[in-house]
Structure formats: C-alpha cells, structure tokens
Computed example of a mutant assay.
Amino acid sequence: MAIEVFNAVTESIDGLQVSCRARDFEFTLDEPKNLGGTDTGMNPVEALLASLGACKVIVAKSFARMHNIKLNSIKIELSGELDPDGFMGKNPNAKIGFSKMTSNFYIDADNTQEEIIAFVEFINRTCPVADTIKNTPVMENKIFL
C-alpha cells in the first residue's frame, strides 16, 4: 500500500492562541491563564493526550469485530505528567515534555477479562499515535522567510 501523507497548518491568532487546520476542519489551541494564555481551548499537550485517546478508541472500534470483541462501549481517560519548569527553562534538569502518560480504559464488552486485556494490548500496539510517541519519527524542519 502506498504511503499516505497527512497535512495540518497551524497559525498564530492572538496571544498564545493558535488556529489548527486540517482538511476542512479547524479548532483553536491556547494555554490556561496560569501559563500565559486566555484559556479559550485545550493546550497542545492536552490535545496530544486527546489525540492519543481518540486514536485508541478508533482502533478499538475498527478492530473489535475482527478480534471477536463484543464492544458495547469504550472510554479512555488519559493523563500526562509534565514539569513546566523544563519548558520554561527554570530547571535545566527537568524533562521538557511528558515524563509519563497513563491511559485508563473503561470497556464494556461481552467478553472475558483475559480477552479484553489481550485486546487492549492489541490496541496499544496498533495505535498510530501511540507508535509515533514511542518510536519518534524523523523530524525535519524547513524555514521559509
């Protein structure tokens, strides 16, 4: 199968607000007031957590039938531990990004506990966002002045 290319455009709006666009969709990211924003949207790390959770839900819904999982509902609560002193340059020893990310799965399925655990392991192995976080891609920057 050919490689698919996905695109997004981000652009400064006002203060720390950022317009995020992909295809015909748009949303705004911002920072909470205590981090210098106006709190008009999720911040980028919250959006990353939401993207990770959404990806896992989509994988679950897409592959449940193939794995004989009778999925009634799925919810994933995500949390990430981040020391803002790393990003703010206040502590050179603090990690800049998340040091830990946790996914709490709430699954209602007509399956055994063992089947559900195996399915969650499959979800975590198959989620493209999780794979991107765990196995960082080549990062390339081009500057246009």
Results as ranks from 00 to 15, higher is better:
residue 94 A to C: 04
residue 86 G to Y: 09
residue 105 F to I: 10
residue 114 E to Q: 09
residue 117 I to M: 13
residue 95 K to M: 06
residue 125 R to M: 08
residue 125 R to I: 06
residue 92 P to H: 10
residue 98 F to K: 15
residue 83 D to A: 07
residue 90 K to D: 05
residue 99 S to C: 02
residue 116 I to T: 15
residue 110 D to T: 02
residue 100 K to N: 05
residue 112 T to A: 10
residue 124 N to E: 13
residue 93 N to T: 14
residue 85 D to A: 15
residue 102 T to G: 02
residue 99 S to R: 08
residue 98 F to Q: 06
residue 101 M to K: 07
residue 123 I to W: 11
residue 111 N to E: 14
residue 94 A to N: 12
residue 97 G to W: 05
residue 111 N to L: 08
residue 102 T to N: 11
residue 89 G to A: 03
residue 124 N to G: 00
residue 122 F to V: 10
residue 126 T to W: 04
residue 96 I to Q: 15
residue 100 K to H: 06
residue 87 F to I: 00
residue 122 F to H: 06
residue 86 G to M: 09
residue 98 F to C: 12
residue 88 M to K: 10
residue 109 A to Y: 06
residue 92 P to R: 15
residue 88 M to D: 04
residue 123 I to H: 12
residue 110 D to L: 03
residue 99 S to D: 00
residue 82 L to R: 15
residue 121 E to I: 02
residue 88 M to C: 00
residue 111 N to C: 11
residue 112 T to L: 05
residue 118 A to T: 10
residue 109 A to G: 11
residue 88 M to P: 02
residue 99 S to K: 12
residue 88 M to I: 03
residue 91 N to D: 04
residue 94 A to L: 06
residue 126 T to M: 11
residue 86 G to C: 15
residue 116 I to E: 03
residue 116 I to Q: 12
residue 113 Q to F: 09
residue 118 A to E: 14
residue 113 Q to L: 12
residue 101 M to S: 02
residue 93 N to P: 05
residue 118 A to G: 13
residue 126 T to R: 07
residue 82 L to I: 14
residue 106 Y to A: 13
residue 96 I to A: 09
residue 104 N to W: 03
residue 121 E to Q: 07
residue 119 F to G: 09
residue 115 E to P: 05
residue 89 G to H: 11
residue 105 F to Q: 04
residue 111 N to G: 15
residue 89 G to P: 05
residue 118 A to W: 09
residue 83 D to L: 03
residue 111 N to F: 06
residue 117 I to A: 12
residue 126 T to E: 10
residue 124 N to Y: 02
residue 118 A to C: 11
residue 85 D to P: 03
residue 98 F to L: 14
residue 125 R to S: 15
residue 93 N to K: 11
residue 114 E to I: 00
residue 125 R to V: 05
residue 109 A to N: 05
residue 115 E to M: 11
residue 88 M to T: 04
residue 93 N to R: 08
residue 86 G to E: 11
residue 120 V to K: 13
residue 117 I to W: 03
residue 107 I to G: 05
residue 123 I to E: 00
residue 92 P to D: 08
residue 104 N to P: 03
residue 119 F to W: 09
residue 93 N to V: 01
residue 96 I to H: 08
residue 122 F to W: 09
residue 103 S to M: 11
residue 84 P to L: 08
residue 111 N to M: 09
residue 120 V to W: 09
residue 125 R to L: 12
residue 112 T to W: 08
residue 115 E to G: 10
residue 99 S to E: 04
residue 126 T to Q: 14
residue 124 N to W: 00
residue 96 I to Y: 12
residue 113 Q to V: 10
residue 119 F to L: 07
residue 120 V to M: 14
residue 83 D to V: 02
residue 86 G to W: 05
residue 93 N to S: 13
residue 99 S to I: 02
residue 112 T to P: 02
residue 95 K to N: 04
residue 100 K to E: 01
